[in-house]
């Protein structure tokens, strides 16, 4: 109550918060990350436009790895189970996260799905985000790396039009490069130049899920990330000891 002039008006109190509006999501994402590191699982947030070839890329990745690593996938989809179904047919245990009208995945949706997928028995977890170059970039899911699929048919200036998405990418996979002979106006160099303006440490691998071109370089990149997962996990064990799992067994 105002005691200055005795007018009886309530006081207006300014409270400093200085906290991210997405603090709850960020906290949940850190929790997911803890799980991934503890269980030595490399989690990749795979983003890109609808039709950029994310699902085909994962199918081809399963073929290229040839059973070398155990894979799991979570597929964000507005309305169908189609992507997860395709991935299961490709031998990747997969679960759909049906988002309804939501245009992106958030850390809570991923956490909920983790309770229903065998991710902790795998080496690599692919989180295939909803096809969208805007919203998914805003939400941390707890991934170790962001990978963006960009199809050669999408145009050379996509990175300049969607700078937020590309500024957060650790790797861009330039997909459908088998179509380049039919696209005389598209230059891979100009796409790389646009990326250099929006993506720090710009890294791009041209790939084709159809012909297998570039899949070797992609698998090498994944292997390097796997070593980083091992390193992070070892650091965690050194800091707080090995994980204790119900039933007394530990993941080997």
């Amino acid at each position: 109550m105002c005691e200055t002039c005795g007018c009886g008006d309530p006081d207006i109190v300014p409270i400093e918060i200085q906290e991210s509006i997405l603090a709850v999501n960020d906290h949940q994402a850190e929790h997911n990350r803890e799980h991934f590191v503890r269980d030595r699982v490399l989690a990749i947030n795979l983003m890109g436009s609808p039709g950029s070839g994310k699902t085909a890329l994962l199918e081809a990745t399963a073929v290229a790895l040839g059973g070398e690593h155990r894979l799991t996938a979570l597929s964000g989809d507005l309305a169908t189970d189609n992507d997860a179904e395709r991935l299961r047919a490709a031998g990747i245990p997969s679960l759909s996260i049906t988002t309804g009208s939501a245009c992106h995945l958030d850390a809570k949706m991923v956490h909920h799905a983790l309770h229903h997928a065998p991710w902790d028995e795998s080496d690599l977890l692919f989180i295939e985000n909803v096809g969208n170059l805007v919203c998914p970039a805003v939400y941390d899911l707890g991934q170790q790396a962001n990978v963006v699929a960009l199809a050669v048919t999408e145009g050379e200036d996509k990175p300049l039009k969607y700078p937020v998405m590309f500024s957060k990418a650790d790797l861009v996979l330039l997909t459908k490069v088998d179509l380049l002979p039919h696209l005389p106006g598209i230059s891979v160099e100009r796409i790389a130049a646009a990326l250099a303006e929006t993506m720090p440490e710009a890294a791009m691998i041209p790939v084709s899920a159809l012909t297998g071109e570039g899949m070797g370089a992609w698998i090498e990149w994944l292997e390097a990330q796997r070593l980083e997962t091992e390193r992070l996990s070892a650091l965690r064990v050194a800091a707080i000891g090995p994980p204790i799992v119900a039933g007394g067994h530990m993941k080997v």
Partner: peptide, 30 residues
């Protein structure tokens, strides 16, 4: 410009512009 330093070649970092920040709330307290 390319997101690497023309002076020393190091990678650029986003110093400002990623904020989604709640700064302050002004409210009526009886």
């Amino acid at each position: 410009e390319r997101l690497s330093c023309p002076n020393c070649g190091a990678t650029a970092r986003l110093a400002k512009g990623s904020e989604i920040l709640l700064e302050r709330v002004e409210m009526e307290v009886p």
